[in-house]
């Protein structure tokens, strides 16, 4: 059965179309990488699949159900590019990972033994169980990324969706990351990820979908890097714009700042 089906998807913001006509399929147990340059629309594509950005044309099916009617979100584990707004209130690694259980448990039930076990298992899978009670801000960037993957794994999903999981992450964490994803796939899970380049994730990838200027330019085995990307030791870290946190209320704060 197809896990994700995208048919002739078009997406735009404010009248400007970013994706024009994108179609691809992710089968059960498959690992698909969406590749492309900055601004190619690859992050928009996965945000659209997750329902964070609306489609303007086309169709998306998740686990065989049209996205609009899809309710079984616990089957999808989303790993964003970085930890949320990261405000001043401390939170432990365990508390962040425990959020991953809400999709399964619902908001009206309190965490029980099954939730605790799932959090422990997920942290073990990414090698961070010893940091469970540490404030998440004391972790390195790579460890924070692993915390986010543990949060997604804690919900025991069938599909993992990762947005640039290895951007700016040190090599050691990338290896730990690849190992955790490998075990997830070995357990029958499907993976959809967006990346600039694959690094240690490369052996896991079944297929690559290359997005270029809002269209699918290539589907098949991961293409070889070109130009300076192919140089040995090329460390590809792009300065990413920090997306504006949705939780920010601008009014009173701005009033003070402007005054």
């Amino acid at each position: 059965m197809s896990v994700v089906t995208v048919r002739h998807a078009a997406v735009g913001y404010d009248g400007r179309e970013i994706l024009h006509d994108v179609s691809f399929e992710l089968g059960a147990g498959e690992v698909v990488a969406i590749l492309g340059a900055n601004g190619s629309g690859k992050s928009t594509l996965i945000r659209t699949i997750l329902g964070l950005t609306p489609l303007t044309r086309g169709e998306i099916d998740l686990f065989g159900t049209p996205q609009r009617r899809f309710r079984d979100w616990a089957r999808i584990g989303y790993v964003p590019q970085r930890l949320g707004a990261g405000s001043g209130v401390p939170a432990t690694v365990g508390e962040i990972v425990a959020s991953g259980r809400l999709a399964r448990r619902g908001i009206f039930r309190w965490p029980g033994a099954a939730d605790k076990t799932a959090v422990h298992d997920a942290l073990t899978a990414v090698g961070l169980l010893d940091r469970i009670n540490d404030p998440v801000t004391t972790l390195s960037g790579g460890q924070q990324q692993r915390t986010l993957i543990a949060r997604a794994l804690a919900g025991r999903p069938d599909l993992l969706v990762l947005d640039e999981p290895t951007a700016g992450v040190d090599a050691g964490s990338q290896e730990a990351f690849a190992a955790a994803l490998g075990r997830f796939q070995a357990g029958g899970g499907s993976i959809l990820l967006v990346a600039h380049e694959l690094g240690p994730l490369r052996p896991l990838i079944d297929r690559a979908v290359v997005v270029h200027e809002g269209r699918v330019a290539h589907v098949g085995p991961p293409p070889e890097p070109a130009g300076h990307h192919a140089e040995p030791g090329h460390d590809h870290v792009h300065p990413h714009a920090v997306p504006q946190a949705t939780g920010i209320c601008v009014a009173p704060t701005d009033r003070i700042a402007a005054g």
Partner: peptide
Amino acid sequence: NDEEYARVS
């Protein structure tokens, strides 16, 4: 903590 993640959940 992460409104988008909550939405996807």
